[in-house]
Design a protein around this nucleic acid. Structure first.
Length: 452
DNA sequence: TTTTGAGTTGTTCGA
DNA sequence: GTCGAACAACTCAAA
């Protein structure tokens, strides 16, 4: 019998359980739906990467990928009908929008006797399956990690039977929209490039990862996040390699594995509490005073453009706009600045990140923001406020990273580059706020919430 | 059942 | 310059 493989965030032809399951049924029509809900929220870099990944997937599938624009609730049943399919296969989506969408699609399909089959997910361990002894979900990372590790299962043999893909033309398709013009080169959005990056990282940067991952001026992180986001790689593929290589897992191997687990932890938290995508997980924090007036909006614009007058913050914000990616430490520094120096709602920053980060993932991104804001799981203590200048001195000691993204400071001497200050450096903005003043303001606001 | 200690990512202050 | 303490309140899991 014929089936439809509906791709969403698993844009790969290999090690794809749902695709393998679809092909095991017989002839298979591979489908991607250009959902306006996604397209409207995505910035140019995200779209560039997505469209490129779809072109690559189409190549992998021998030119058989059917692309259709519209609401999946209408498009998927229509394609199933045109293909005379009896089943639609997907990798399960556990995020709030995806779950709602899939339930709605399944309901419509069911009316015409078509089954929506969920096989696998973008995670090594499915959200919802790591629980405490009493069945309740974890709210702290470390015990989650301890329980998660033994649940890891090896990657199943799932070479897809591409010979069963239905010939192009059998079902109406449409060309992809043109890729947006970008000023810089993004990582190549292909499965091959994803594997090459992983191999490069495993061979060259995994050793010493624990230390190097904190220095934004060097290529010390895996940079696999965008591949994982769109499923050009599956985390099980990485974990399998880590086990083989690490007969005795080193501190670096172990740490990289725990970073993969963070992604799964936040997906699990969001699965159990879908409202926390945009609402404070700690409900008492709704009482926290944040600024939302006209002046706050003007400050937000400066932050977005990278014109705060704090070089390390500006470098991070400009890296995001220029490259569609930001180093992990920079995400923390820039987020801390928005929340604790500018007193803006974390949601504003999260929305900006989601628009521009190619790897933008609602669970990791928004719960990362909640962590910084002190509203989330395992929340940062309220007094943990990043000092942009000392973070800069500690993690970008030579100013390499700052000079790369803030050209006004290219010739600024290192002793001055972490904080040019009010005296300033020719052509560079003066600080928009005084950190020590805003730090006190943040502490006062947190104290007000805790009732003292 | 109750108690106890630890918990991704920090900063400041005073000795 | 270095070092330890203090900066809450709460969750989780082991004892």
């Amino acid at each position: 019998m014929t089936s439809v493989m509906w791709f969403r965030r698993d844009l790969r032809g290999h090690d794809n359980e749902a695709l393998a399951a679809a092909c095991a049924d017989g002839p298979c029509v591979p489908l991607f739906v250009l959902d306006p809900v996604f397209l409207e929220r995505a910035g140019p870099a995200r779209l560039w990467f997505l469209f490129g990944a779809l072109e690559s997937l189409n190549d992998t599938l021998g030119g058989t990928l059917v692309v259709r624009a519209g609401d999946p609730v209408e498009v998927v049943p229509a394609v199933a009908h045109e293909a005379a399919a009896e089943a639609v296969y997907v990798a399960k989506d556990f995020a709030p929008y995806g779950r709602r969408r899939d339930m709605a699609v399944a309901a419509v399909l069911k009316k015409s006797g078509v089954r929506l089959g969920g096989v696998g997910s973008p995670y090594a361990v499915e959200p919802g399956s790591v629980t405490k002894d009493d069945g309740s979900p974890y709210a702290v990372f470390t015990p989650f990690y301890k329980r998660w590790s033994p649940l890891l299962t090896p990657l199943g043999e799932s070479d897809p039977l591409h010979s069963l893909l239905v010939a192009p033309g059998a079902v109406r398709t449409q060309p992809l929209p043109p890729r947006p013009k970008l000023d810089v080169e993004l990582p190549t959005p292909t499965e091959t490039a994803a594997h090459e990056r992983w191999e490069w990282f495993a061979d060259n940067a995994l050793s010493g990862y624990y230390e190097k991952r904190n220095t934004p001026g060097i290529d010390g992180t895996s940079k696999l996040s965008m591949y994982l986001r769109f499923g050009l790689l599956h985390p099980k593929q990485l974990i399998a390699d880590l086990v083989i290589d690490g007969t005795k897992a080193t501190k670096d191997h172990e740490h990289f594995r725990s970073e993969l687990c963070w992604r799964e932890f936040y997906a699990d938290v969001l699965f159990h509490q879908p409202n926390t995508a945009w609402e404070n997980l700690q409900s008492k924090m709704v009482a926290m005073r944040v600024d939302t007036d006209g002046r706050a909006k003007a400050r937000f614009e400066k932050w977005c453009r990278g014109e705060t007058g704090y070089p390390i913050v500006d470098a991070g914000m400009r890296q995001l706009l220029r490259t569609g990616w930001m180093h992990n430490r920079m995400r923390m520094i820039t987020a801390s600045f928005l929340v604790k120096d500018l007193h803006l709602p974390w949601q504003w920053g999260a929305r900006h990140f989601m628009r521009h980060l190619v790897d933008g993932d609602i669970a990791s991104n928004n719960h990362g923001w909640q962590w910084t804001a002190g509203t989330g799981t395992d929340a940062a203590p309220y007094f943990r406020i990043f000092n942009p200048q000392s973070q800069s001195e500690k993690f970008d000691p030579n100013g390499t990273y700052i000079r790369e993204f803030v050209p006004e400071l290219a010739d600024c001497p290192t002793r001055q580059i972490h904080f040019p200050g009010a005296g300033g450096f020719a052509g560079y903005a003066t600080p928009m706020v005084d950190h020590s003043v805003e730090r006190e303001e943040s502490l006062a606001r947190y104290k007000a919430v805790s009732g003292k």
